[in-house]
Amino acid sequence: MTSAVEQEYIKVIVFQLADKEYAIPVSHVQGIEKLMHITRVPKTPPFVKGVINLRGVVTPIIDLRERFNLPIVGEEDAARIIIITLEDMEVGFVVDSANDVLDIAADSIEQQPEVVGSLEEEFISGVAKLDNRLLILLHLDKVLNPLS
């Protein structure tokens, strides 16, 4: 989220989707799980994969590839579910793989990304350049928004 501005460094979880790397502040991440059985919930948008049993809590799962209109691939071993909390919501994101935990400098985040191309801009709160890596910071409110 944009709260990065006030801090000098923010700690983020870096994950992979297709050929790009994305980042979510650690403060919003509750945990990273391996893929498990997902129960489909009917009459929901296609990017809602369903719900899982996360230690006794029924948690909805969003497939970020579907959400960002990226090509769908089969289940990979590296695929992970990143459990996010935002306000009173708890949601899991299916990603290709969870790569890293990084500290990124707040001033390395640029607000207006132009490089992103196909990805819908509304989900992006900024991009951070780190050496030769480009991290896309997600706007969690927007990613979770349209269902409310």
Binding site: K43, V51, G56, V58, T59, M89, E90, L147, S148
Partner: peptide
Amino acid sequence: SLGNYLTNIFAISGATILGNGKV
């Protein structure tokens, strides 16, 4: 409950966890 993200799903009032751990 299905949590605060999935609300008002048609004809589904909630979920439960089965003996095998699935929902």
